[in-house]
Design a protein around this nucleic acid. Structure first.
Lengths: 218, 218
DNA sequence: ATATATTTTTAGGTTTGCCTAAATATATTT
DNA sequence: AAATATATTTAGGCAAACCTAAAAATATAT
């Protein structure tokens, strides 16, 4: 009933790569996202399939079973609750928490996480705006749109940012945070970069790569 | 510069077994305290000696070097800070925290532990009364006496209890906690058991084994 | 449709941390 | 001081989780 850290990390990677449409996930992509090699992933896939946590047919990609998805969501719940704790209680910056949360998410104790949840007053979103699954793995869905898809002249509020330290540091530097109001002044079709105005004040130019990693609410 | 969980656990075990007089520690005792076999310990001792964390001469017992002691104290600091957090913030009972703290103590992040320490307002003692080393590994010493050595008619206050879940559960059951005032009504020389009065109220009989694991302040 | 390229799997190897059993060193008893 | 008992180390194995290199399957391009 207990899983190793490596098993948990593989489940989490598969969950994230599958996306909301729960598409099949491929060996190489898992390896790339975990910084390991395909051969190591194949080995783990066999193990996870034996435990009925994924559906796996050789050369055919994998998908999570119901049980596997539950477990993945539980790990994500732990990760996001710890991130919330680190920022709200310990006063970490939002770009400093990822590594530590990656360790904390593997602590094994059901009562710990429920007590932490109570202590934090059942937060619904982590510091990057990602929803925190409840103890049954249910996630609140919000209608959200990628910044990259926002048209010129439109305004919207940042509600979600990919949890990548480098990105987060960059956004902090240019003044974009959760809750910032962004107005699209210009979209450059040549490279899909965007000229934005932040909270009616500063203007910044951001690349398409950045804009793809920011979600907004109208 | 980073150590594995197993290395850290061995350092901690050696530190605890050495006691305040820092006596030499033996392979079998380490194995017993960790629930492993002597052969595994020998292997680890070689590794720790290579890294200059212990002094090791075959068949001769081991002792921590200055560096080794620092590392051990750092792990103990983390363990005790987390225990304090679990009890004071998350409202765990004092007998429920040991296992979880054993996991949390291995989280690697210097800033995490300093921020946790600030958040908790720099506690000096953990929930069992054990002193929490400061960030330089310094420990406050208190004049303390073992309950077993207390004479008849004497009264004293519990200030330290060994961190063993079974013991803690038992003490909770009979009504002994940190801060309880104990009066020695009778010492039975036959088996060294003691008849105590707790906070001027209930009377209980405790065995020598229990009394050895409780410290008191006059 | 065949050739080429890419992806995935298999085969075999490494390290860490554990094990058992046998060998060796030390301690205790007679 | 031998003999016996106890403690420790050595030798050889195992499982987990990684690796590289080669083989096999699938996808893409000519």
């Amino acid at each position: 009933m207990q899983h190793t850290t490596s098993e948990e990390n593989h489940l989490k990677a598969i969950f994230h790569l599958a996306g909301i449409n729960e598409e099949a996930v491929f060996t190489n992509d898992i390896a790339a996202s975990m910084g390991t090699k395909a051969a190591s992933v194949t080995e783990m896939l066999k193990k996870l399939a034996d435990r009925k946590l994924i559906r796996y047919k050789k050369y055919n990609g994998v998908s999570l079973t119901e049980t596997g998805k539950e477990q993945a969501l539980n790990i994500i719940r732990k990760h996001r609750l710890w991130e919330y704790f680190l920022v709200e209680k310990l006063k970490f910056k939002w770009d400093e928490i990822h590594e530590v949360a990656e360790q904390l998410e593997h602590i094994q104790s059901a009562s710990l996480i429920e007590k932490l949840d109570s202590f934090l007053d059942h937060p619904r979103f982590d510091p990057h705006g990602d929803p925190i699954p409840d103890s049954k793995g249910r996630i609140k869905k919000t209608e959200t749109q990628k910044l990259i898809d926002l048209n010129e002249k439109k305004e919207a509020t940042v509600n979600l940012v990919s949890d990548q330290p480098e990105l987060l540091r960059y956004l902090s530097k240019i003044g974009i945070a959760l809750g910032s109001k962004l107005k699209v002044l210009e979209k450059i079709s040549f490279d899909n970069s965007m000229l934005l105005q932040i909270d009616g004040k500063n203007k910044v130019q951001i690349s398409a790569d950045i804009a793809k990693n920011i979600s907004v609410q109208l």
